[in-house]
């Protein structure tokens, strides 16, 4: 992507169609490995929607991640962990992300606890919730639904008003 600036505007000339289609990439990638049946992603026309009522400055915000604590062992299950102290590292090696182009050493790039805290300090938002939550990337919709209900329970326990979901 090349930027050129004129007197009154910034133009971007592209060499690649954006955004990338990960559905296409994964289908072609796994077909080449001998998996002839592509993964079928959930698809919906509509989406449930809950309007936000009240100002951001009164809201408690929580984050959901697909990363897991470094010390986690055994089968992955949904978890809740205290935000403090902010984790210095998270386990991400087993997740699908672009390990050639970037890294995940900077935890705030995918688990932005410190940024929500900073925005609360700046009075953009009320406060960071006491815990963040993690969910495994599941291919069973039934298990995903169970994880979602578990997150809902934790959100209610923590008095959270708004949830940011940040998959790697």
């Amino acid at each position: 992507m090349k930027r050129t600036t004129t007197d009154d505007e910034t133009r971007i000339s592209v060499t690649h169609r954006t955004p990338v289609s990960y559905i296409d990439k994964s289908r072609e990638f796994y077909a080449a490995q001998g998996y002839p049946t592509p993964y079928r992603w959930a698809a919906n026309v509509g989406a449930p929607f809950t309007p936000v009522t009240g100002p951001l400055t009164d809201m408690t915000v929580a984050i959901v991640t697909t990363a897991f604590p470094v010390e986690a062992r055994g089968p992955k299950r949904a978890y809740a962990q205290a935000c403090e102290p902010f984790p210095a590292a998270m386990a991400t090696d087993d997740l699908s992300w672009d390990k050639d182009a970037t890294h995940t050493d900077d935890v705030a790039t995918f688990l932005p606890l410190r940024h929500v805290r900073s925005l609360a300090t700046r009075h953009v938002v009320g406060e960071l919730g006491p815990r963040f939550y993690g969910v495994p990337t599941e291919y069973s919709r039934r298990r995903t639904e169970l994880d979602a209900r578990q997150v809902e329970q934790w959100v209610r326990e923590d008095g959270v008003d708004l949830v940011l979901l940040v998959p790697l």
Binding site: A42, T50, A148, V155, D161, L165
Partner: peptide, 15 residues
């Protein structure tokens, strides 16, 4: 993850 977001929205929690 998007399915979790859909569930939360469906029970009144904005995401």
């Amino acid at each position: 993850m998007s399915l979790v977001a859909r569930h939360l929205e469906s029970v009144g929690i904005p995401t």
